[in-house]
Design a protein around this nucleic acid. Structure first.
Lengths: 246, 246
DNA sequence: ACATATTGAATGAATGTTCAACAAATTCCG
DNA sequence: CGGAATTTGTTGAACATTCATTCAATATGT
């Protein structure tokens, strides 16, 4: 359950002398101008890999370089230092996450109930929510308290995200006559999503992406009963987990 | 907001030559048999301090020894290695956490609604929920994926905890005629608690122990409306956050 | 030819571990 | 009881290892 989305991981487990998927995509053909940016991405991907496989404290420059199939000194050429490589990696993940939920929000149309459900579902999308990425996020979380730079980037669910969730909760409250404080409800919701990520990363128990999303939906159904209803439980052989927008 | 609970922290910020609080408690008087265990605790406290202040990756044996006001080689005498010191520290925190929620559960009496509220409240007790401890937990989380030993100990809310929460949710469901799956609801609840810890640790936004507990209570009120009701919002100058057991 | 990208060995700093010497407490024995 | 003998706890310097960084040499593309 919860397989990784990147093809790199598998190949790197067996042999580091063979070229990585990312390097195959990148190399040859390209001009230098382009290649420079591609190299950075390649190294960032290798960093995420290493974070997921070895953890923050055992991620070394050599490991990243090997993972990318390049030489030792290369990282200090493209990124100035290890610290800057890690910041760039975190920035990359934060940008990717933000783009993802914004896109989901937009695709959901104008109905606030549908929008909120879409943002919740987006959190458990394969492209965002896989062992590799979650492990990397968690690695940064663990170092965030003692590093202001990380702290600023580390909230995937940042101030802008929080504002959107609060506004959606407020809108639903007005439209459904609920009693709750939107602020507190939004905090509870986003904290739960983050907590579910943590559980998924840990991999203990039998929590899967599906059961995590299910828990997220149950939350919505319970808190906003006039906007959501559980889909009939019998009829979902393998399709999307169940929720219905009223 | 969210001050640390241990007296050691303050003294260590100014001067490491002066004896630490913990060492003052421990030293003199005691026989060796006793002192050995006390030393271990002293070093474990210093480890938690270092994890909170520097993060996992920058916590060094020298820093722990200095923090405890002892010499460099001492840690390898009481614990065999750095790895074992860290495992012992994590074990200590896990035991402490488990003892805390079990105690809260027992004190809550026989009413399941009161029990569940008590377990939620216990999570935000000063003795458990302070910057120092939360930062240390998070430091371990960040390394847990790549270390099976950590992974086993790292779920503060472990299998036993989860079972209790599920059972309480099931009992409430039967007594109140709710529609939710107890398993999923318990997952949502405990994930939210963990997520709130994470937010508190990050210290971003204006999340405090009080507002986090408030969010936890709002969850209970929303999900189990026949068992909980929000206390009247106007009347709490500084007392416990508001919830009423029906 | 020139600029840019890449290599890999050399370097130096940081850090976990070891250990011989030392201190303190406990036991042994006259 | 009192002073050696012994066990236990502690120190700090020495050691070996790991790792980020540097840089002269080389390769590649313009």
């Amino acid at each position: 359950m919860l397989e990784t989305s990147a093809p790199m991981t598998a190949s790197r487990l067996q042999d580091r002398s063979s070229e990585t998927a990312a390097s195959r995509d990148a190399s040859e053909k390209r001009g230098r101008k382009q290649s420079k940016e591609v190299r950075r991405l390649q190294l960032i991907e290798a960093t995420i890999d290493s974070l997921a496989r070895r953890g923050y404290s055992e991620t070394t420059m050599a490991d990243v370089a090997d993972g990318a199939g390049l030489s030792r000194g290369i990282v200090n050429f493209h990124f100035e230092s290890k610290e800057k490589l890690l910041v760039a990696t975190l920035q990359f993940m934060a940008d990717e996450y933000a783009a993802h939920w914004r896109s989901a929000l937009q695709k959901a149309g104008d109905d606030p109930a549908r929008q909120l459900a879409a943002v919740v579902a987006a959190d458990f999308d394969r492209s965002i929510c896989n062992k590799r990425k979650l492990a990397a996020w968690c690695a940064f979380w663990g170092e965030a308290k003692s590093r202001p730079t990380y702290q600023a980037l580390c909230g995937a669910r940042d101030a802008a995200y929080q504002k959107v969730i609060i506004d959606l909760c407020r809108t639903l409250k007005q439209g459904g006559g609920y009693a709750y404080e939107p602020q507190a409800m939004a905090l509870a919701l986003s904290a739960m999503l983050e907590g579910l990520w943590l559980r998924l990363m840990m991999g203990t128990e039998d929590v899967t992406r599906e059961s995590a999303l299910q828990a997220g939906y149950e939350f919505l159904v319970a808190v906003f009963p006039r906007h959501y209803a559980p889909a009939e439980p019998g009829t979902r052989p393998g399709g999307k987990p169940a929720i219905t927008i009223a």
